[in-house]
Amino acid sequence: MESRHYLKGVSSMNFKQWEEATTLPVPIKVTEELVHAYYEAASIPNNASQHVPPALPMIFYQYINVPWFQEQSFIHKDQVFHYEHPISIGDTLQCTVSLISVEKRRQFLVLHQELIGRNEHKNIIFLAKSTLLKEAE
């Protein structure tokens, strides 16, 4: 699959034009502070596992410039995380977001996208697949 990278400053409401696009990789460090703030929000005990909670990578989105997210809100329909290795505090992951497909279903646009985190050897550590709905204009 040929991927297009995000051109800074370009924004569009036309989701179809971003189909198969991938953001530039962003290094994200999983700090103790970040994980503990997440524990607090989700009522997870502080003596939790040595690995970070499985849904935590979604907070990485705030560090990635995703052009088709500019000032948009979506209905989150489904979410799947697949892990090749668990994530621990101190890990740094190179993260990208790809818009896999955009399809029209009744009054909605259905967006399938993937957030992928890789280690320093470019091996995939996790993959987070989201299905999002947007009311078609």
């Binding site: 690995h51 499985p54 489904d78 979410q79 995380f81 697949h82 892990y83």
Partner: peptide, 10 residues
């Protein structure tokens, strides 16, 4: 144990 996969339908 560790989490290999986790899915949710809202």
């Amino acid at each position: 144990y560790w989490v290999k996969s986790y899915e949710m339908k809202f």
